[in-house]
Computed example of a mutant assay.
Amino acid sequence: MSVKGATPASSVIFPGLAVALVAIVTATHYDFTPSASGLVFAAVLLVILFGTVFAAVHHAEVIAHEIGEPFGTLLLTLAVTVIEVALIATIMLGDKAAPALARDTVFAVVMIVCNGLVGICIFIGGLRYREQDVLVSGANLYLSVLFTMATITLVLPNYTLTSPGPVYSAVQLGFVSVVTILLYAVFLYTQTTRHRDYFVGAAAGFSDDDVRLPPAKMALSVGLLLLALLAVVLLAKKFSLVVDAGVAATGAPPAVAGVLVALLILLPESVAALSAARANDLQKSINLALGSSLATIGMTIPAVAVAAYVLDKQLVLGLDAQGTVLLVLTFVLSMLTFGTGRTNILFGLVHMVVFAIFLFLLFVP
């Protein structure tokens, strides 16, 4: 997505359409049901929702280009995380109980990002440039925090004694939520202040020839970003009903709902990461990809935990044995991929194969 030139009409139209749809649904008290008219509503909702998410990420990119790296990547990640928390909380805490949705979505994000997105970015970059460089120091910080967060939120709940797995007791969940927030906060301080140079590749930052955005365009992007995020949050309830109906109608396994939520929120950011890889800025791709995983665990789990506690809902976090094996494999593979600071197409292909295995096992466990 380009951040230069005139503002794309779609980035203005879709937030407006989303607000209009929210107003119509609210005024008419529309309640989605699986029917012919419901199918039309679902199609309209998905088109508007996807368009609005893309618009939100576009405006986040405009602002990110203005403020530079790594703050720009951080802003993109936080914008997507707001959408993710809204969708997960709405579906999980809705009328139909889905206590494992947060786990399924977080696990799906880790697999999509660390295997699917990272693999495709490395593979595409390797095809065009043979090898690409990443900063080992920054990748190590990403992976150390990510591995710790993923283990204490997705694996450890299976082995605690206070409550039978795969759930934490209220005290344990509160402690883990505080720890993940603390880890993520210190990571952000490290990324943006203490060791900013660990995350900024040679292609990042402003050159002397870069042109700053006019204040009016900057203000427009800020306003439309906030409007788009608000619209997505307000449409999350209807989206949850459509997802539930679709999963029930197709007979898909419950974990597919988490994958759909993850795909929706990651699609625009994935486009930005792929564009960066094609432009030989793999470091930005990795910042976007691994940053998404960290933000998902560091912000989503505590937010959903608070909602579950307030509304007295059970939160299932522990993965089964199959998911744990895939998670450990992802950890080991990521360390090998980023350990030398240079990547090639074979690293990318291996990550893509692991992601294909994850998708296959969803339907043929």
Rank of each mutant, 00 (worst) to 15 (best):
Ala108Phe: 07
Ser169Phe: 06
Ser163Glu: 11
Ala100Ser: 14
Leu161Lys: 10
Phe54Trp: 07
Val118Leu: 12
Ala42Phe: 04
Ala42Tyr: 05
Leu117Trp: 02
Lys96Asp: 07
Leu87Asn: 12
Gly126Ile: 06
Leu45Lys: 03
Ile48Gly: 11
Pro70His: 04
Thr81Gln: 12
Val106Cys: 10
Val57Phe: 02
Ser169Leu: 09
Asp95Ile: 14
Asn115Val: 09
Met92Thr: 14
Gly72Ser: 08
Arg130Lys: 15
Ala170Asn: 06
Ala43Asp: 00
Arg128Trp: 07
Ala64Cys: 04
Val85Cys: 11
Val113Arg: 08
Ala79Gly: 14
Arg103Glu: 03
Ser137Val: 05
Thr52Glu: 05
Ala97Thr: 07
Leu39Lys: 06
Gly165Ser: 08
Ser163Arg: 13
Gly165Glu: 01
Ala89Cys: 04
Gly138Ala: 03
Met149Glu: 12
Ala170Trp: 00
Leu141Pro: 01
Leu78Glu: 05
Gly68Val: 04
Val155Ala: 12
Tyr30Phe: 15
His58Ser: 06
Gly125Val: 08
Leu154Lys: 12
Met92Gly: 15
Gly72Leu: 04
Phe50Cys: 14
Asp31Pro: 01
Gln172Tyr: 08
Val145Glu: 02
Gly126Met: 07
Ala170Leu: 08
Ala79Pro: 04
Tyr142Thr: 05
Ala102His: 01
Val109Gly: 12
Val110Tyr: 06
Ile152Ala: 11
Gly138Lys: 09
Arg128Ser: 14
Phe71Cys: 05
Phe41Arg: 11
Arg130Gln: 14
Thr77Ala: 14
Ile120Met: 13
Thr105Trp: 00
Gly119Met: 07
Val85Ser: 10
Tyr30Cys: 11
Val134Tyr: 07
Gly72Met: 04
Pro34Phe: 10
Pro166Phe: 13
Gly126Val: 10
Ile122Trp: 05
Ala98Glu: 03
Ile67Glu: 01
Arg128His: 13
Leu101Pro: 12
Ile67His: 07
Met149Arg: 09
Ala97Pro: 04
Glu61Asn: 15
Thr105Ser: 13
Leu154Ser: 13
Leu76Met: 12
Val44Asn: 03
Ala79Gln: 00
Thr151Asn: 02
Ile124Tyr: 03
Val134Asp: 07
Leu76Glu: 02
Leu78Met: 13
Glu69Gln: 13
Leu78Gly: 11
Phe54Arg: 13
Ser137Glu: 04
Leu101Arg: 09
Tyr142Ile: 08
Ala86Tyr: 01
Pro70Phe: 09
Tyr159Met: 03
Arg128Gly: 07
Val118His: 01
Arg128Lys: 15
Leu39Asn: 11
Tyr159Asp: 01
Ile112His: 00
Ile63Arg: 05
Ala56His: 00
Thr162Ala: 12
Glu131Arg: 15
Asp104Pro: 14
Ile122Asn: 05
Asn158Thr: 05
Val106Asp: 03
Ala139Glu: 01
Val62Glu: 00
Phe71Lys: 12
Val80Ser: 14
Leu74Trp: 06
Ala64Tyr: 05
Ala56Pro: 01
Ala64Met: 02
Thr52Asn: 10
Ile152Leu: 11
Leu87Pro: 02
Thr73Gln: 04
Ala60Arg: 07
Gly72Thr: 04
Gly116Gln: 02
Phe107Gln: 10
Leu143Tyr: 07
Ile88Trp: 06
Leu154Pro: 06
Thr52Phe: 12
Thr81Ala: 09
Leu78Asn: 07
Val109Asp: 12
